[in-house]
Simulated scan of single mutants.
Amino acid sequence: MNLPDRVKIVEVGPRDGLQNEKETIPADVKVELVDRLTDAGFANIEAASFVSPKWVPQMATSAEVMARIRRKPGVVYSALVPNMKGFEAALAARADEVMIFGAASEAFSQKNINCSIAESIERFREVAAAAKQHGMRLRGSISCAMGCPYQGEVPVESVADVVRRLKALGCDEIDIADTIGVATPRQVQRVMERAAAEFPLERLSGHFHDTYGQALANIYASLEVGVSIFHSSVAGLGGCPYAKGATGNVSTEDVLYMLRGLGIETGIDFDRVVDAGQFISSHLGRKAVSRAGNAIAAKRAA
């Protein structure tokens, strides 16, 4: 089976990874983390979230972080926006891409934002139009695409429906996210193949959490069907507030180690990513949740 020759990694640590941290992380540390990731060669870094600080206090410094990072030409710095207020803030902060989101699970949508999937995505129509008007990239993310903490299994057709809706809004890329990390490889392939019937495969991405230890296997399964964009989080930062014991996003170091072994190009400096992972873990006062990163760090220290 032919795997892609090259893969794009979207580094989500500075946003999706750090947003669940209880202790406030200074803007200086966030800026240094983004700068280290820029230097490592990522083409796309999720750097900010313009949501109400009341809901996600950790992201209250997003405007400052975006103002201070050392930008590299050609690198896409993304921001999550929940509404037009968030979009205006992202525009002012010079985000290259805004990310909008919807769930594939009706129960998840109702529990979290008190509206249906269709209503939640309709709310983004104005944001999508504004992004296009300002020449910004628009990314859509589908949470709970492989399983939901409230309803359990999520029908593949529900995912296809959300893909169609996001496509209609003009999304440049669509993320298929296993938010609670319950998916297994064959299931992932079914979902990706169905999504690809609605939207170009080369613009679909896989966003896997490693709660049940299946993330790398799920990435490999996605590669087998031709997916070539994946999200990962340096040092395995992150968690999911809806799944007890969730270890959060798959670690970037582990993904890069596997891709390097498969001979797949990423354009990313693995050693610099290990350094970035050790840097942020040291600041957080705990060991990185990255087997490859910790193994390399231990080897260096020996």
Score class of each variant (00 low, 15 high):
R15D: 05
I176A: 07
F101L: 10
G74A: 11
E253H: 12
T247V: 15
A131D: 04
G226V: 10
G236C: 04
E119K: 11
S228Y: 03
E126Q: 03
E202F: 11
F208V: 11
G238D: 04
C115E: 14
K244L: 12
A160K: 07
R291M: 01
S282H: 15
P200W: 08
G170F: 01
Q110V: 07
V34D: 11
E253P: 03
A288N: 06
F270N: 09
M66D: 05
A60C: 03
M66S: 10
G135S: 05
Y257K: 10
I176N: 01
N249H: 09
T211R: 01
H134D: 12
I268S: 13
P82G: 12
G277L: 00
Y212Q: 09
A196P: 14
A215G: 06
F101T: 08
A103G: 10
H207W: 11
F101W: 13
T61E: 15
F279E: 13
A27M: 02
V34G: 11
D269Y: 05
E193V: 15
R194Q: 15
F279P: 09
A93R: 09
V65C: 12
Y220C: 13
L169S: 04
A168M: 00
L262W: 11
N294Y: 02
A60V: 10
Q110E: 15
S281Q: 11
A302G: 11
E193T: 15
R164Y: 00
G248L: 13
V81C: 03
D178R: 03
I280R: 00
R165F: 06
A243N: 02
P185V: 02
